[in-house]
Amino acid sequence: MTRPTPPNPYDFLPELPELKVVSDDVRDGDRLSEAQLASGGNLSPALSWEPGPEGTASYAVTCFDPDAPTPGGVWHWILADIPPHVHGLPAGGEPGTGRELLNDLGSLGFVGAAPPAGDREHRYIFAVHALGVDGLPVDQQTPAALVGFHLTVNSLARGAITGLARTAGQGE
């Protein structure tokens, strides 16, 4: 598939203070491991973040692929309502921490990277959002784009790291 590279969608949102996000599983700008691929372990990466600014009432963690061949990218993961004292998640998440919301692939929870055959390398943006509300006004069937709206209007700070993935046979 030959097409232009979409911009990073977070570049078009209101500016926010940066939240430092780190991971032992994802290095910003490097390839994701087999564990984070849909064809591999399909496992969300371990993530940790610094405390949000004063007023942080909860966190949300998302994974977004802006390079999916759709007009609006694909949400691979939305975990909201993470308590304000939590500043990290192990690989695979922590059962009972936060509330899994519907991703664009029709399921709750993380779905690993899966660029379509013949497409270029995709970016998977793992973002942590410090929120000024203790719970988003959504339910588990709310479309991911609407959840994204609520994340934007309630965010006090945001940080992200980006992993890359290719489909087998796309070249190195």
Rank of each mutant, 00 (worst) to 15 (best):
Y10K: 01
S58P: 13
I161P: 01
P115N: 07
P137L: 08
E100S: 13
F110H: 13
V22S: 14
P69W: 03
T142C: 01
S107T: 15
S155M: 09
H85A: 12
L102Y: 02
G93N: 09
E100D: 14
P53E: 04
Q36F: 05
V61G: 05
G106T: 06
R31S: 14
G132K: 15
S39N: 07
L19E: 12
H76T: 10
V128C: 00
L102G: 03
G112R: 10
E100K: 12
S39K: 14
L105E: 14
P69M: 02
G52K: 09
H85S: 10
L102K: 14
V26L: 01
L146Q: 15
P84Y: 05
V153T: 15
Q140P: 00
R3Y: 06
G92K: 08
P90E: 07
A117C: 00
A114Y: 13
E54I: 07
S48K: 14
V138Y: 06
D11E: 12
C63N: 14
L108A: 08
V111L: 14
G40H: 06
S23C: 03
G29D: 01
I78A: 10
V61N: 04
A38K: 13
G52M: 06
P116C: 07
A68C: 07
R120Q: 09
H129I: 09
G171C: 05
F64E: 00
T70A: 12
L89G: 09
A114T: 08
F12G: 11
S58E: 11
I78D: 09
A160V: 03
V26C: 05
G171K: 04
G72H: 15
P137W: 12
P143Y: 11
Y10D: 13
A80Q: 07
D25F: 06
S39G: 10
D134H: 13
R31Y: 15
D119E: 15
G171V: 04
F126Y: 15
V21H: 10
L102A: 03
P90S: 07
E50H: 06
W77H: 15
E34R: 15
G159M: 02
N103W: 08
V86I: 15
A168F: 11
T2A: 12
P51G: 01
L164A: 03
P115H: 06
T56N: 05
R166N: 03
R99W: 02
P84S: 15
P17M: 09
L146A: 15
V133W: 05
R99D: 00
A35N: 12
P66K: 06
W49K: 05
P143F: 07
A168G: 10
D65F: 07
Y124W: 10
H122E: 02
G93I: 11
I125D: 02
L16F: 01
E121A: 07
N103H: 10
E54N: 13
V21C: 05
V86E: 06
E172V: 09
L102M: 12
R166E: 08
D25H: 12
M1F: 05
L37E: 08
L131D: 08
V61I: 13
G106E: 04
L89Y: 11
V128Y: 01
F149K: 04
F12V: 01
V133K: 04
A168P: 04
R27D: 03
G135D: 08
V147G: 02
L108C: 08
Y10R: 14
G171N: 02
G96L: 09
F12I: 00
V74P: 00
G132L: 01
T5A: 14
P51Y: 00
D139L: 03
V86L: 05
A57V: 06
P45Y: 03
A113F: 11
P137N: 11
